[in-house]
């Protein structure tokens, strides 16, 4: 209901207020519920180890001791949220961002590959969609392959891409960006095929009565009509682009990036470090989706307000 009302407001930025106003309470409630579950889970999962340690030390312990110890282990099965928060604070704020120990540094490494992959993948997706919509042969020959490309498990193909590109002398950011691109061109291509085909026969007939050329039909009708579809698929694309970059870091023994952080964390049983990297990755993903959403609002406001966009 709040959603519908917010959509009806003409100004695109009205949506920003929505995050602050009507949604704050439900969001906070869910957050609290998750934290409570997390703390309970930490006690449950860490308890066996804690009890074993107490018993080996022949120590008397109360259930309060158990809880306190379960929430402050050095290598817990599941670290408590405050441990993760402390790790984040230490590696984000208390470390120079140029340091290899800084999570900001690792996040930047992953982010740069994500963004390069996202831009390349989106361009590829848009180009493929334009081709599929305009050329009947491409519609028949290409679309099945585009869909088939996504049935290949990315975890299987990622190491192959890295090895092949490594042999061609390409290392570092580019292989990761290409894995990102491989994942994120798909939703953009599918969304844009739908978007570019969204104008009704009536609107196409209208262009025909003006004797508009193919380029004019594209730029004055198909492209603006497809924008709501483009932004919807870009939101999906940017999120899986981040996943692609992280997956690209796992099989390569990369020394930097959130994926590398996850990998070293699991080598040394540093669960707190793993969880900190996970939280960082999800914050990054949320920020990216939010940025695309902001771009969407600004674009749609400049071209007719949120209502037209929401209706299509």
């Amino acid at each position: 209901m709040t959603d519908v009302l917010a959509q009806a407001r003409p100004a695109g930025l009205a949506g920003l207020g929505r995050l602050g106003g009507g949604r704050a309470l439900p969001l906070a409630t869910v957050l609290l519920a998750i934290l409570a579950l997390w703390y309970a889970g930490a006690v449950y999962l860490n308890a066996p180890q804690v009890i074993e340690r107490f018993e080996r030390a022949h120590q008397d312990w109360s259930s309060l001791d158990l809880v306190a110890a379960a929430w402050s282990m050095e290598r817990p099965v599941l670290p408590a949220p405050d441990q993760v928060a402390m790790e984040l604070k230490k590696t984000v704020f208390d470390t120079r961002i140029t340091s290899k120990r800084s999570l900001v540094y690792h996040a930047w490494v992953t982010l740069s590959a994500t963004l390069v992959g996202f831009v390349l993948g989106s361009l590829l997706g848009i180009l493929l969609a334009v081709g599929v919509v305009h050329l009947r042969t491409l519609d028949r020959s290409l679309l099945p392959w585009i869909i088939a490309s996504q049935t290949v498990p990315i975890l299987a193909i990622a190491p192959m891409i890295v090895v092949v590109l490594g042999n061609l002398g390409l290392t570092g950011l580019l292989p990761k960006a290409i894995i990102s691109m491989y994942l994120c061109f798909f939703p953009v291509a599918i969304g844009m095929v739908k978007g570019l085909r969204s104008p009704e026969t009536l609107q196409l007939d209208l262009m025909r009565t003006y004797s508009a050329g193919a380029a004019q039909v594209f730029w004055k009708l198909r492209w603006p009509a497809s924008l709501p579809f483009l932004f919807a698929s870009l939101k999906v694309a940017v999120a899986i682009s981040l996943v692609g970059a992280i997956v690209g870091e796992l099989p390569t023994g990369a020394v930097a990036g959130l994926g590398a952080r996850l990998l070293t964390g699991s080598y040394y049983g540093q669960t707190v470090q793993i969880w900190a990297a996970l939280v960082m990755a999800s914050l990054l993903g949320m920020a990216l989706v939010f940025a695309v959403g902001l771009a969407e609002r600004l674009t749609l406001r400049a071209t007719g307000g949120a209502v037209a966009g929401a209706d299509r």
Binding site: L202, L206, T209, L221, L227
Partner: peptide, 15 residues
């Protein structure tokens, strides 16, 4: 010729 359709066929993204 100018053609007027049954529906206005205005583009929603244009004023």
């Amino acid at each position: 010729y100018g053609y007027v359709f049954q529906a206005p066929a205005l583009y929603p993204w244009r004023n």
